[in-house]
Amino acid sequence: MTKLSVNVNKIATLRNSRGGDTPNLIQVAKDIQSFGGEGITIHPRPDERHIRYQDAYDLKPVVTTEYNIEGNPVPKFVDLVLAVKPTQVTLVPDAEDAITSDAGWDTRKHKDFLKEVIAEFKRNDIRTSVFVDPVSDMIEGAVATGADRIELYTEEFASEYAKGNQKAIAPYSLCAQQAIDLGIGVNAGHDLSLDNIQFFKENVPGLLEVSIGHALISESIYLGLENVVNMYLNKLK
């Protein structure tokens, strides 16, 4: 069974837009888990435009499922992860001014850096995942860093699938199988939605976890958060 981890960045964006505490991020995380969500994901960025670093600490005692913190392992981020000790850290090569994640790691070029950071997280019993494009060399490179998992960057799949191109799943299927053969777990995320998640799940072997935020929160405006969480869970079975 593929686990659903809900990225709550957009809840924080809405909260921050009025400067208050509505919607309450902590309550939403509790509710998502009570609705059946199997994990909570956050992606704090240096400017704290959505998730604030304090949110990471505040969420720790209320996330009773899996807690996944994503981000670029700059020193401030590393310190945060080591202090909070989430279930999983997902390393993403975001530029400081990135609107959203837009590329995976070059795991060969940055092998030594990633290896050092990952070793530190693993010494602290934090599962590690590396955000990668569906490219064979990048999968091999991720394995060499010592990461526990990869997270396949799925924007290209989502874009092509929306145009009717189901063949866009091919590199994801191949890379997932390669990862399994090399002994590393497979996660996925970015632009996955109710429209494409079932097809993706059915065609990507060994998929352990998907992290979904923007689409899920947007769909919930029309369909309701509890309903949408369960719609995803049904499609992932």
Rank of each mutant, 00 (worst) to 15 (best):
S136K: 10
D112T: 04
A95S: 14
T145M: 00
G141R: 04
A162V: 04
V117K: 07
K115M: 04
A179E: 15
D181E: 15
D148G: 08
D102W: 05
D106Y: 05
P134W: 10
C175T: 12
F157I: 04
S173R: 15
E155S: 15
A170W: 09
P134D: 09
Y161P: 09
K122S: 07
V117D: 01
K115P: 04
Q166V: 15
V117M: 01
A103W: 03
W105Q: 01
A168I: 12
G141I: 02
D125G: 03
S101R: 05
D137F: 03
I169V: 13
I150T: 11
Y153G: 03
A147C: 12
A176K: 01
A103N: 06
P134I: 04
I180P: 03
K109L: 15
A142G: 10
T107H: 08
A170S: 11
V135A: 13
E120L: 09
P134V: 10
A147V: 12
S129H: 02
D148W: 04
V135L: 15
Q177E: 13
D125Q: 08
I99P: 01
V143E: 02
G164T: 12
K109D: 10
L174Y: 10
L182M: 10
A119T: 11
D112G: 02
P134L: 13
V132H: 08
K122V: 07
G104D: 01
F113H: 06
A95W: 13
E151G: 05
I139R: 06
Y161G: 09
F121I: 00
C175I: 07
I150K: 04
Q178T: 02
A168Q: 11
S101V: 00
K109C: 04
D106E: 02
Y153W: 14
F121L: 00
K122N: 05
M138F: 14
G146K: 05
G141A: 03
I126A: 02
V130R: 03
E156I: 08
D137M: 03
Q166Y: 15
R127C: 07
S136L: 13
P171S: 00
D102G: 08
V135S: 09
F157A: 08
W105V: 05
Q177A: 12
D94Y: 02
D106G: 13
T100R: 07
D133Q: 08
K167I: 06
A168R: 14
R149H: 12
E116L: 05
A95Q: 14
N165R: 14
R149K: 12
F113M: 00
R149D: 07
D181T: 12
G146S: 04
E151Q: 07
A176W: 05
R127T: 06
Y153Q: 08
R127F: 09
Q177K: 15
E155L: 11
Q178A: 10
L91R: 01
A95F: 14
N124D: 00
G141S: 06
L91N: 04
G141E: 04
